[in-house]
Design a protein around this nucleic acid. Sequence first.
DNA 1: GTTGACATTAACGTTACGTAAAGGTGTAAC
DNA 2: GTTACACCTTTACGTAACGTTAATGTCAAC
Lengths: 252, 252
Amino acid sequence: MEYTVQKLGRLAGISTRTLRYYDEIGILKPARINSSGYRIYGQNEVDRLQQILFYRELGVSLDNIKKIISAPSFDSVEALRQHHIKLLEKKKQLETLIMNVEKTIAMSEGRIKMSDQEKFEGFKQKLIDENEEKYGKEVREKYGDETVDISNAYFKNMSKEDFDKMEALSVQIMETLAEAFKTGDPAGSLGQKVAELHKQWISMCWGHYDKEAHAGLAQMYVDDERFTAYYDKEQPGQAEFLRDAIRIFTGV
Amino acid sequence: MEYTVQKLGRLAGISTRTLRYYDEIGILKPARINSSGYRIYGQNEVDRLQQILFYRELGVSLDNIKKIISAPSFDSVEALRQHHIKLLEKKKQLETLIMNVEKTIAMSEGRIKMSDQEKFEGFKQKLIDENEEKYGKEVREKYGDETVDISNAYFKNMSKEDFDKMEALSVQIMETLAEAFKTGDPAGSLGQKVAELHKQWISMCWGHYDKEAHAGLAQMYVDDERFTAYYDKEQPGQAEFLRDAIRIFTGV
DNA sequence: GTTGACATTAACGTTACGTAAAGGTGTAAC
DNA sequence: GTTACACCTTTACGTAACGTTAATGTCAAC
């Protein structure tokens, strides 16, 4: 089956302008141009367009779509599997958002209360995903396929020594946190020592120090389950304890 | 609680640029400007921003969001309910798309075969929805709250007489179709009479006539379940019969 | 041989921001 | 007291993915 722009457009539910644009940027060129200069698309182009629209639906930029499906190593089945996973994630996020809406309705009716933080929950997950994606990409560009641990040092182009120092600090933090947690007092000397160590650690991470940001990060350790899981892995409650200690330490 | 641009941005997971832009276009103005010219947001703004992001997530343009939430009749709880329904629809569509991906993977592995039509199913539903939304909006702008039936005449700014004529035609089509269907022969004189009547009808709809489009529409009566349901409502199989009659009539 | 649907290129418009430039503000640290 | 640095400001140009308009060529049908 052969298609002109309009026929293919109708088939796929897109405009002729879109098809010409796709030709222009080289993401979907017609199989041939007939004697009158008309674009003629064939079976291969139909399939390729389908691929393009799949990725577009995911919010992938045309530029990236081009890279993905033009790469010589492109394995379309594998790409589809990845695609499938992303769609499932998107669905999950949508479900979070739906829950959030239901919560907000309940709140409007006065049945429950929501914190300002909670009000943006459905959206935030998306942000985190995007950051991860961006972060991961940049790291891969800079360091190739080195270990994930080293990628932690990304922010400041850290030296190996600095990195080792950070590692040591982070071990020390976890140990001291465990000790301090036993005392049950975030304001105590051990609790404040953890906060001080943590300050040193993020100072290295960020290249500078900022009280409010520190307190904000501590709050995130409680709000973001990935961080909570990390700090709570030995004793549940440690993430919250750390936040309280830092709150007192920073006075925020 | 009061927020500066950055604090609110972090809370909601958006950039400061976005907040300034929202101020600029008047969709979200700060509660006040302090002595240094800083934007200060309060509780109302947090809630309004949440509303904005809800709609944005749905793909509504900022311009339309502004109209929606600025309308004096804006009922936020009711809006949330609508919003909730739309999210559920979006989820459903996403599930269709996921199924489509799974189907395509299966196809790539040679387990099943898919027609060109099927390949675009997930997108098409979306297209239909969008068209309906756009269509409905434009009609409301043009005719206010008149009946949905009259809105059918939208395309060509049809007169009342034309509209009545169309109505009469559509009744005649249904009656003749029922008669013709009994003969079981789409090529017979009754079958071809239906096709001819249908040609007249769509000529009025579109303002012109095109064979291929006619044949295409007839195919859609079979492919799109909403049309199929309409034509099959008296006798299952009538949609298919009509398509066959039109196929023969147009010679496509 | 004239419609009218279809095709072409060229080029400017749009939305929702990103990004940089050039500068003022607030406060913690030396 | 001034340095430093995270904030804030406005102005203004850049971008993605097309939409839209204009001016023009092509093809099938009546």
